[in-house]
């Protein structure tokens, strides 16, 4: 017994003196925390979510295997929604519909806006840093705080309607309490909050386009607008893909703004209800973790396929 022990410890010692194994051992120590935490809270949790999606459970009692029933809940909900049921009967459908509309508004708008602003800023003018800082400021502020401020600005007799009166006289909706405007109000806040960040990314990409390409185009008589369309935009393609993919991932799982501006029940008529809110409600209000897991897998599949298709189409990979 002690002999084998001795042998083992000797072997350990010689193992430690060996260059390769010593390096590997110390490396394992260095990566241990990152690896363990991410394996548990990332991979184990994801696997557990997948497992959970086949069970009925209320966090306390025993888990009951129900096969694909949780997914049936989703599809029944979707079916009811398509056949025209109200928000209360088809919350998931409402969330899905809203988030798709929201994404379709936010992602193109913020991308194009960011690109145009960057193009304007990418000229020899003074004070570019000032513009960058002011555009970027919303991006470093918590969405919750932004939402709280905007609820006030969006009031019927509020600042935004006041400013709007100069642009569109007579147009003064009750943004937050009117179900036909709530989602647009949220979308506007989101665009306001993120476009500045992407503008800075675009500006950096534009500044790395070699100047002589522009000079050559100028000699050929291309004006600033045509230079933008025929040179800048194609050269920016990787950055556009990056911004769009990040935008898609963010928009499809939008939660904070809706939670504050619409409330967890989605506001009037569920106009501000999103898939993310629905998953939260299933998990922590309705206490149906199995259904929440199934819905989150649906969300994952949606995000994954949308971004995958987009990246495939434009043949640029984004991590």
């Amino acid at each position: 017994m002690s002999k084998s022990h001795l042998f083992l410890s000797q072997k350990m010692k010689s193992l430690l003196e060996k260059r390769k194994s010593r390096e590997a051992l110390e490396a394992l120590i260095l990566i241990s925390v990152v690896t363990c935490l991410n394996m548990v809270f990332g991979y184990f949790a994801a696997a557990f979510a997948f497992y959970l999606s086949f069970f009925k459970w209320d966090y306390i009692g025993p888990m009951e295997f129900v096969g694909l029933k949780n997914f049936m809940v989703i599809f029944k909900d979707l079916w009811r929604g398509i056949s025209g049921a109200y928000f209360f009967q088809a919350p998931f459908y409402t969330g899905l519909k809203n988030i798709l509309l929201y994404t379709a508004i936010v992602v193109p708008t913020q991308t194009i806006l960011a690109m145009i602003l960057a193009a304007f800023a990418n000229q020899k003018i003074k004070g570019v840093q000032f513009y960058k800082v002011s555009y970027f400021l919303p991006a470093v502020t918590s969405p919750v705080i932004i939402a709280l401020i905007f609820i006030w600005l969006f009031m019927k007799q509020g600042y935004i309607n006041y400013m709007l009166q100069f642009v569109a006289p007579g147009f003064a909706p009750d943004w937050i309490n009117d179900k036909s405007y709530l989602l647009y109000a949220i979308a506007l806040v989101a665009i306001w909050g993120t476009s500045g960040h992407f503008m800075v990314s675009f500006l950096a990409a534009m500044q790395s386009i070699p100047r002589d390409i522009y000079e050559a185009a100028m000699l050929e008589g291309a004006g600033p607008i045509r230079r933008f369309i025929y040179i800048t935009v194609p050269m920016l393609k990787p950055m556009i893909v990056y911004v769009v993919v990040l935008g898609l991932i963010g928009a499809l799982q939008m939660f904070d703004l809706a939670w504050v501006m619409a409330g967890s029940n989605g506001g009037p008529g569920g106009a501000g209800y999103t898939m993310a809110l629905d998953i939260y409600n299933e998990a922590f209000i309705n206490l149906r973790p199995g259904v929440a897991a199934a819905k989150s897998i649906f969300l994952f599949a949606l995000i994954f396929s949308v971004t995958y298709v987009f990246q495939k189409k434009y043949k640029v990979m984004v991590r």
């Binding site: 949790a45 557990f48 979510a49 959970l52 989150s296």
Partner: peptide, 16 residues
């Protein structure tokens, strides 16, 4: 792991 939305791991992590 960056591809997995936080909502997927939310419930299991809550349980952990």
């Amino acid at each position: 792991l960056l591809m997995i939305p936080i909502f997927v791991t939310l419930v299991p992590n809550y349980i952990i």
